[in-house]
């Protein structure tokens, strides 16, 4: 067990943001937190990360737990001269070979010496992921990993996360409001709206009345409808690559 939280409550400025939320994440497991806007998804992440103190509840984190964190979006002022290479080694020094390997893994190998401010949103997401990986985390925490990426790219992001989980055996906790793709990649879905509305395997959650009430447009067959069937995909440089969808990679795992 990497993190186990029981009955987390969070009150900020007199407003209840979280109420009795319980979540646990195991090694090698992908846990996805979904919920409507303002449901407290990001707040829950921040409490689990230890950035905010919960107002109530208990949290147990594994000893010497190493976390790799990828926040929602990050902006770095152009006044700071910083290359991707320097950005990756801000905390942990690493050999050039390891840096190259980390960038290769997330599919942006050409960016090592680029100024960090010249990156596109999608490239920045991947560089953030590479930095998280360099710390050899037991747990990857991702806040809206596919935000600002088009639908085809989103599938690629989730495929990548799933592959990283398999390669490194780390646990993954992510927050998303993108339902279909992310649920296809999840082992456990936690649907919250201040409190936990429902939780379980993706198929169970998508049939749950609370879920259907929160996301009326999702439909009962939500997961199936959106799994990708492109016959090719484009990588970041625009080159055509053979298709590997999230569904294909995760489908037989369940």
């Amino acid at each position: 067990m990497l993190i186990e939280a029981r009955g987390l409550g969070l009150v900020r400025n007199g407003r209840t943001i979280l109420d009795g939320v319980s979540v646990s994440i195991r090694r090698g497991q992908i846990v996805v937190v979904i919920g409507p806007n303002g449901a407290g998804k990001t707040s829950l992440l921040r409490v689990l990360l230890g950035l905010w103190e919960p107002s109530s509840g208990k949290m147990h984190r594994g000893r010497h737990l190493r976390i790799g964190y990828m926040p929602q979006r990050i902006q770095i002022d152009p006044i700071l001269p910083l290359s991707v290479r320097r950005f990756l080694t801000l905390r942990h020094r690493a050999s050039l070979a390891r840096l190259r390997e980390a960038l290769e893994r997330v599919g942006v190998s050409g960016l090592l010496n680029a100024p960090i401010q010249t990156l596109s949103g999608g490239e920045m997401q991947r560089v953030l992921l590479a930095r998280a990986l360099l710390g050899e985390p037991h747990l990857l925490v991702l806040d809206e990993p596919a935000q600002g990426v088009d639908v085809a790219g989103q599938g690629e992001v989730f495929t990548l996360i799933d592959r990283l989980r398999r390669d490194t055996g780390c646990g993954v906790l992510m927050v998303s409001h993108e339902l279909h793709l992310v649920m296809a990649a999840a082992d456990v879905v936690v649907c919250i709206n201040q409190h936990v509305c429902c939780t379980g395997r993706p198929e169970e959650v998508s049939r749950h009345p609370e879920y259907q009430r929160l996301f009326p447009d999702a439909g009962v067959h939500g997961i199936g409808v959106y799994t990708h069937r492109h016959n090719h995909v484009h990588d970041l440089t625009g080159e055509v690559k053979p298709v590997r969808t999230a569904a294909e990679n995760t489908g037989d795992a369940r």
Partner: peptide, 18 residues
Amino acid sequence: RPLLAITVHEEIARVEGV
């Protein structure tokens, strides 16, 4: 180094143990 890390992104730095 730690100062630079928190200047670039304080929360990532904190999670990374700065």
